[in-house]
Design a protein around this nucleic acid. Sequence first.
DNA 1: GCCAACGTTGGC
DNA 2: GCCAACGTTGGC
Length: 152
Amino acid sequence: MNYWLMKSEPSAFGINDLIDMPDQTDHWDGVRNYQARNMMRDDMKLGDQIFFYHSNCSVPGIVGIMEVVKEGYPDHTAFDPDCTYFDPKSDPEKPRWIMVDVKFVKQFDRTITLKELKEKPELEDLALVRRGNRLSIMPVSEQQWAFILNLV
DNA sequence: GCCAACGTTGGC
DNA sequence: GCCAACGTTGGC
């Protein structure tokens, strides 16, 4: 099993929005970065566990867990001219962008803040806390996963 | 609102 | 293929 962290701005789609979805499941659309896409396309497998991270907000941090319930498939929002995520260069015959479906697993009692994560020597290799990292999807090692869970 | 870091675009 | 310009991310 693999572990991941995915960022979302709570003003656009926060963990409570996922909880409110039918079956507490949604597709993770709108990823327009090749590295992140490749991870969804090639490495995310059914049952993989994902930290839900709130970015670009007053208290950035990890707020809960979700899991992969459908592996990579074409992101249809790229084909819709009325959608913010429209990409005219993504051909429906040869889709450029990929998404996965995720399901809510749990919400933490508190936010594990970015500040806190940055203070832990055990997490210095976590992509999230490395300088200038802007990836919206990143792998988390089994050790990092367990360590972070212990902080809750 | 500011700005550093990064990815993408496009001229050459 | 290089690289400057530009747009975006996201913490602060």
